[in-house]
Design a protein around this nucleic acid. Sequence first.
DNA 1: ATACAAATTGCGAAAAATTTGCAATTTGTA
DNA 2: TACAAATTGCAAATTTTTCGCAATTTGTAT
Lengths: 138, 138
Amino acid sequence: MSPELTRFKSVMRQNNCFITKQRLALFKYLQASPAISINALINDLPNQDQATVYRNIKLFERIGIISRLQLGWNSKLELSNTFHDHHHHMSCVKCGKVVAWEEDPTIELRIQTVALKLGFIPQDHQLEIRGLCQSCQK
Amino acid sequence: MSPELTRFKSVMRQNNCFITKQRLALFKYLQASPAISINALINDLPNQDQATVYRNIKLFERIGIISRLQLGWNSKLELSNTFHDHHHHMSCVKCGKVVAWEEDPTIELRIQTVALKLGFIPQDHQLEIRGLCQSCQK
DNA sequence: ATACAAATTGCGAAAAATTTGCAATTTGTA
DNA sequence: TACAAATTGCAAATTTTTCGCAATTTGTAT
């Protein structure tokens, strides 16, 4: 069992949530790519009703398993699994491609400092960069 | 005329967009707070049809005047005026309060570096921190 | 000023996205 | 294995967003 799966089950148990096959399939699907739209989820998990998908997305958000991203100016809402090492996203304004990147210690540290200065206890953060990807620069 | 308003008009002209009173009202409203939901906009701009509000939000996003934020796990989509000095947001996971903060040179520089390393030409970015605000810590 | 072409608006209706109630099924626990 | 509680699927309701089109408004060139 992958460490992400172990962690997933542990978080679910901590929150008194049943581990159903629908939830497992959703979690695994979310692990496969850095960002995915709700529509893609509903289409690619055809054995689940859309109501179930929506309910479980909301649950996963509430207990911190996924978070919502707003990538481009015209893009749909997307979801990303927070159990990835990469929390941050860079998206191309032209072709829409999304690349995830690893935490950057300098940025993480700065975020801590800024949050504390404003009186917040930081819990989570999200950084999205928009720009032109290599192939769209040509 | 405020410098923001001047810049707004200039960006609008560059994009061959008419400066209508609906768009001016929308822009001014977006300037008043760090983040605002679409519903609040529609309710607070009662002299505009909701179709107009939606169309102009889309326009403003496309030409870079506003950007979308996804603040809390349960929060609605919000919009923020990019002409503010503060681009970044910190939101309280408990009470939903949103605080904007100024650019941080260390973070900005790091973002440039990371983007270039991944082959992107960065155009815009967005950083959102979630945590517990001072009053909700008690 | 005035007139004109093109862009924008308001309206109503359509389409898309999300949520809800409830009976049937599934889950974890004892 | 049996039970209580949680979850699912389904259909319908609700909410959010988009669209077509006639009427109005805007910027520009007289």
